[in-house]
Design a protein around this nucleic acid. Structure first.
Lengths: 215, 215, 215, 215
DNA sequence: CATGAATGAGCTTTCATTCAT
DNA sequence: AATGAATGAAAGCTCATTCAT
């Protein structure tokens, strides 16, 4: 089971300790929020004394920034790993969404930090996460453009339209991530399916009985 | 000109004073966040002494809750007022979205409280705003259902599907609200149009050149 | 006897409280030094809570600066009050020295702040007290010049020589202040007499053009 | 080139290591002050780990005391070496002063420790440096007595007067040391000359029995 | 001989909240 | 109706000091 959280286990190499601290910080920041989280609590959860946290991570601000970066990188990596580039664009989108829902479900504190906390506590942090979100939006925009080219020789979608659409899609995904994690029995794949139906087919078509499917 | 903010003017009826305090609180909470906002700052901005804030609003927590309620009610009212019930369901949806984008653009501090702060600072506040969001989701779900009935005798959309779709739609709207407020020259109606295209027509149709229009 | 130090006596006008705090701060800083003095100790000695000290004096740094200024002003005022301008220059100097020794004897903590602490704890504070010392040096330089003119039509003392002499005289006075305060039974007037013997008889010869030389 | 400061070089004899540490400590204490200097900084500047500093010097307090002693001994030695006992008393005094000004100019951190820091941070340290100062004052008192005997068979200077004069002279010297080190282009010999003018010409008259009086 | 890992204790500062008038 | 005066409690951060290797 590894060392029990909250109990001091002495003399570990720095890298290990640092990981423990970051884990504790992500959990505490995710659940309490940046301001409400105290360094005392983080240190206790990590099973170390407060000075050690400062020795390794320097300050609350730097610690939070480090958490944001770690979680952002992990999320991006998960999505990219999910969306295999050999697939068709719409299938890539579906797979990316599924990976996204899976990752956020498995890693709720990290998701809370990125989605809620970082954007609520001042420019430096918000900028950090905005960079990551922009990366995802760009990724999605690229997929939409690719899909358009695959489907029709001459797409009628202007660049600015695509940006708005990508914003809407990402926002919808973020919202569904919360919903899926809270609603009993909604799996990541299910959520991804719902969103693909919504995004790809549109409400109008859905009402006529049309459905998007992986093939 | 009315009483200048930040300057003490004596002896006003309670209702007026209370309004001044709430205005100051919404602005301060919206810009600083719940924790970073200090009662000192709120009192000063309201032009009253701190004990008076406590006399009327009891505590920081209650004050924040009161702000959430006031802003939530105002937002719901704006959306309901926008979506005239005599219109067709899709037009109602469009009108409601336009009203939503307009209200959030005009009232950014209130929107920040609802969208960011309340959800980030603990259950009691999150629950408060969840209630409002559920109300909006229910409203949207109702519109989707109505549209389905208007269009086809037997809708194939199950209740649970509709809930997910409504979640996605509301999330997309929230995301676009931020995007529209930050992006130069994107009006509320434009944002509503973008979202209707996305939601009603779907990416698939959009690529074929189809567009949703108010008529 | 007034309110006993260290015991809380409630609800006093701000000016009174502020004076109590400054008194406590001068005493604590003077005896412990800037760094070793804790705001806790100052607050306790002043008979108030720590937050009140911050409310009125803002920070440890500002509090220390305020102490320096207050004590510097008091010392300058004491010396100026002692040296009646109607007297001959040498008598003015004697009177000023006597006032200086008296003030430092009566006010040892204030003197410790100016002479020891302020100069030992960083530029901002050192600059503050340097200003005052320069004022005193200028005052003494003026007296030396006046005495020279009174005694001999054409003084042979160059400006730079006088600056050095004034530095030496002030340094000697500072040193004697410590010695007189520590040595049993040395009064302020006695110390002033000793220093006048040392300084004046030397100066008197200098003014006649005499110089000591290595051979 | 010798080992570069701040870089670890392994396995040196204890005496060498200890010297490096003391050098680093004198510099750090002299520039930052006793409290503001951190053992971390000292260890880093010495190029060793903190535990080694503790192993050799035991504690911050002992380290500081050791610095005071070393610098005091060095200063005394410099002054004694300067004042050749074969010379006449006034020339001895001049030479001693010149040596003093030279040593403090060359060794500003050591002088800061003795003159400023040690006297500012509590009895134990102040006592340490007071011993050294007393030694210098006694040395000067001896010179004054010798000069008096050389000049006049029966000196009219009582012992206590001489103590006061020596205090004044030493204080003047301390003050001039600061002035000379800060003022562009004032050499040690020049400062010694200024002080001899000030002091000796006055003392010369005193020895002839002259006295300044308030009337 | 030498150090990486770790902490107890203390400091400055802030804030929500109340009392006496 | 309204406020100047005051505080308990806690938070971020630093530092001298020690252990285990």
């Amino acid at each position: 089971m590894g060392p029990v959280k909250g109990v001091r286990s002495k003399r570990m190499p720095r890298a290990v300790r640092e990981r423990q601290m970051m884990d504790a910080a992500v959990r505490t920041f995710g659940q309490r929020g940046y301001r409400a989280a105290s360094m005392d609590e983080i240190a206790e959860l990590a099973g170390v004394s407060k000075p050690l946290v400062y020795l390794y991570l320097n300050s609350k601000e730097e610690l939070f920034t480090a958490c944001i970066r770690r979680e952002a990188d992990a999320l991006i990596a998960a999505v990219r790993a999910g969306a295999e580039p050999r697939l068709a664009a719409d299938r890539q989108l579906w797979a990316g969404l599924a990976a996204f829902f899976t990752h956020t479900a498995v890693n709720p504190d990290g998701w809370a930090i990125l989605h809620r906390q970082a954007r609520t506590h001042g420019e430096p942090f918000a900028a950090e996460v905005a960079t990551m979100r922009d990366e995802i939006v760009a990724f999605v925009t690229g997929l939409i453009g690719a899909a358009a080219r695959e489907t029709h020789r001459e797409s009628e979608l202007a660049a600015r339209d695509m940006a708005g659409l990508a914003q809407a899609l990402v926002g919808a995904a973020e919202s569904l991530a919360g919903w899926a994690n809270e609603t009993e029995g909604v799996s990541a794949k299910e959520a991804a399916g719902t969103l693909m139906n919504f995004a790809w087919m549109g409400l109008g078509d859905l009402m006529k009985g049309a459905r998007w499917s992986a093939r």
